[in-house]
């Protein structure tokens, strides 16, 4: 095979291509950003990296596909965004519920017992990694769980006996419609929904944290948990709320991801989780606006890197960029913590 030379011309040679790579990166960056929120919220409040958050997202993607199978059946069809909208909204609700439930379960089983006993942060980190494996494997073995209770026949469209670890696709393939072109990139209705839904949720969450009573409690706990507790803030409740919000956002991200990609698998959370975590660190971990900026920057950088060096280098480009940013700004691009956000 021909060796691929460094190809700056591919990216900067034509405005069309440049815009096309950028637009594609922004759409995926928005999904990174929504997942990154979960990492950043939990870190802001607990100074803990919740490594099991990628699995919270992965369960959301399955909830979306299952909702379609349940309401639509397994017949494979193409539908436009408009046709799929009612089921998609149901899937959004299901994904948010499932993801939030998994996040709350995580908090209850993997974190709260440790926090109560005053365990070092490192222990909670390991507990999170363990929970992440357990959740991913449980999804990969769901056909066996179903067969233990004798439901594998009834649930065979959901658990796919024998192929539970294989790729699982939404039976309804959402066919995007090109609305207009930016450069050579045909911007579709799906792309716009992904981008604007991500932005809207970010703004809503940002306002929630800055303006509401619950938001104030979250910020107070993030700033100084002991003083907050003395002032009557129920810190357990705040931690729960934080996980809940992270889970809801991951469920929304899962729905957008399934709209765009359409298939998932039991380890789908891993790579996206790493990317989202990177986005959170890049933007300044603990900072909501930083997560958005980090996600979008990462998505765009990956595509630019793919254009110049080839797709096999996209992760190298993204992570070198992360190191460079952290060298110059050790606390990330917007480096402000959740607690310091002003109302």
């Amino acid at each position: 095979m021909k060796e691929r030379p460094l190809d700056f011309g591919a990216l900067f040679g034509s405005f069309d291509n440049f815009m096309s790579y950028t637009a594609g990166g922004l759409v995926f960056g928005a999904i990174y950003a929504l997942i990154a929120l979960g990492y950043t919220m939990v870190y802001g409040v607990l100074q803990l990296i919740n490594f099991a958050h990628s699995e919270v997202f992965m369960y959301g993607t399955f909830a979306v596909a299952w909702t379609f199978v349940f309401l639509h059946g397994t017949g494979r069809v193409n539908q436009s965004l408009g046709e799929a909208l009612p089921v998609l909204l149901a899937a959004l609700v299901a994904a948010m519920i499932v993801s939030a439930a998994i996040a709350l379960l995580l908090e209850r089983l993997a974190y709260r017992p440790l926090i109560k006993k005053g365990a070092p942060k490192l222990i909670a980190l390991i507990s999170a990694i363990g929970a992440s494996f357990a959740l991913a494997e449980a999804m990969g073995l769901r056909d066996r769980f179903a067969s233990w209770v004798g439901l594998d026949d009834n649930l065979k469209n959901y658990v796919v006996p024998g192929k539970a670890r294989d790729v699982y696709s939404n039976p309804v393939s959402i066919q995007p419609k090109g609305l207009f072109d930016i450069g050579g990139y045909s911007v579709t209705d799906v792309d716009l929904v992904v981008l604007f839904a991500a932005l809207a949720m970010m703004v809503a969450l940002d306002q929630f944290v800055r303006r509401t009573r619950f938001g104030r409690a979250i910020r107070a706990t993030a700033q100084d948990p002991e003083s907050a507790a003395l002032m009557g803030v129920n810190s357990t409740r705040v931690v729960q709320l934080t996980f809940l919000i992270g889970g809801l956002m991951a469920g929304a991200a899962a729905t957008l991801y399934m709209m765009k990609i359409g298939s998932t698998r039991q380890n789908a959370g891993f790579i996206l989780g790493v990317k989202a975590f990177t986005a959170a660190v890049m933007g300044g971990i603990g900072n909501l606006r930083g997560a958005l900026l980090g996600g979008l920057v990462l998505g765009v950088m990956e595509n630019w890197g793919s254009a110049v060096f080839g797709s096999e280098w996209k992760d190298v480009v993204a992570f070198v960029l992360l190191v460079l940013i952290l060298l110059v700004r050790p606390s990330g691009l917007l480096g402000e913590s959740l607690g310091k956000a002003r109302a």
Binding site: S20, G24, F28, G184, Y185, A268, E302, S306, A307
Partner: peptide
């Protein structure tokens, strides 16, 4: 899962 860069390269 994100193939947008390849798509752009193919079209370019």
């Amino acid at each position: 899962t994100d193939m947008s860069a390849v798509v752009t390269s193919v079209k370019a």
